[in-house]
Nucleic acid binder design. Structure first.
Lengths: 249, 249
DNA sequence: ATCGAAAATCTTGGTCCAACAAATAGCTGC
DNA sequence: GCAGCTATTTGTTGGACCAAGATTTTCGAT
């Protein structure tokens, strides 16, 4: 218990790297965060109006607005016209957006991301083989089935990602899942490109189904092989440079 | 080549989820990003002054400032009095800070992060066994050696993380490394707690050395075993709830 | 008199301007 | 070469206006 208290204190100090005088805007950001904490506001609760905040904290409204823009960028608040700033749960979205903000869009980047996915999705294989329940696998089937029910490339990419997301979810590690989701924009982008030329939904669905089957059979080797092949399959549509066949380095 | 052009266009559309009219501030954020891209500005280059930006893009200075606050929060620019906004390379720091923001500080969270690390660091084992060069291993030794050269808990945690970071770096995947680094604040926090009670630098150094040896021997099983044990070892200092001995679930 | 709809009003965020303070880059004079 | 001055630029504030949406008021129909 005392351990936890120490932790909180220590981590609070992470922000105090520059003990020097903060700008009024930064000070306001802190004060508003404190306000939220002190009043124990929860998601959806409204903050005071900009004018009130300015009055309470002795700052101009423009200064308050700049602070709110920062909080907004952090996904802490969402400001709706007229109703004002309300506490938001879009934090993860903000992280995701920020993460993808200036990711370069190059074939090398795609290759890298697919390599990452291979490490992750193959890496959780041991756990999946051991711990997935029939219900889990049925759920995967259900998610996979959605791949066949629509036509839009955008939709297909989303459902494709949903399958892999569900797979990673089964690893039962929240940190891993959060990190994997960070790449959602990039991954769905890869998928869109892969599916742009011609619809490959049935192929994808089939590949997913085989992967599920490998899990049902608790066949670690098949899982690894099928998953690797599946991820590499998508790559050949992305790396179009040489025009030749294989895409392995 | 044409593929790449399509990609860039498509990803630009990712932000256009709400095709409705953007606010002037959001529009400015985009315009400034475009400006940076068009002029091929690099890290350290200065942007036009706030008044110039306002004139060029037909916006008031306050609006420009709000846009700059967002860019600043994103780690894209750093604005210094008098000289103005200059392009910054703090983007990853901003992501890291924002990411750590949401992480609650609980034993469960620690357990989760350690589980994540196990998945990652064990997961790259195959690649490491196959591809690490003697030079790589010497580098690991050098990084590990630093663990013995100082006393501060803070320093020790940093060097401890540096070793694991170096390990992940050897996997040769930039995406993975970026994601792993995201957890730096949380991981070093875990390490600080683990080392708070008494100095265990020699133990840690020893454990690292054994892991390196396993890589030298290209012994996949030993690598997995030693790494898992090492990561679980740190955990027993975190989960202090029962006060009894073992901490395995 | 009661209810509901329409209109007027009031509040609030969005944007812009003007002004001043503080900091400092760059010039000026020695 | 250096001290000091000046002009420029960001930091901050207050005020103004607009548009949109919430609130209240008004007023007609029943």
């Amino acid at each position: 218990m005392s351990t936890q208290a120490i932790l909180v204190a220590d981590l609070a100090a992470d922000d105090a790297l520059e003990p020097a005088k903060l700008s009024a805007v930064d000070r306001l950001v802190e004060q508003i965060r404190d306000l939220v904490r002190d009043r124990k506001l929860v998601i959806g609760d409204p903050l005071p109006t900009e004018r009130e905040l300015g009055e309470v904290f002795q700052a101009g409204r423009n200064t308050v607005r700049e602070a709110l823009q920062i909080l907004k960028a952090y996904g802490i608040v969402e400001v709706r016209p007229k109703i004002g700033a309300v506490l938001s749960d879009r934090h993860e979205d903000a992280v995701r957006k920020l993460f993808a903000f200036q990711h370069d869009i190059s074939p090398a980047s795609f290759l890298d991301v697919q390599g990452y996915r291979k490490i992750i999705e193959v890496g959780i294989g041991d756990h999946l083989i051991l711990h997935t329940t029939p219900a889990d696998l049925d759920h995967l089937d259900a998610v996979n089935a959605r791949l066949l029910t629509q036509a839009s490339v955008e939709e297909a990419a989303r459902h494709d990602f949903a399958f892999h997301e569900a797979l990673v979810t089964l690893a039962g590690n929240r940190t891993l899942l959060t990190n994997y989701r960070l790449l959602q924009p990039v991954i769905t982008q890869i998928m869109r490109v892969g599916k742009a030329d011609r619809p490959v939904q049935t192929d994808t669905h089939q590949a997913h189904a085989e992967i599920i089957k490998a899990l049902r059979d608790r066949d670690r080797v098949a899982y690894t092989y099928l998953l690797s092949r599946h991820l590499e399959y998508g790559l050949q549509f992305v790396v179009t440079d040489p025009g030749k066949g294989g895409a392995q380095s």
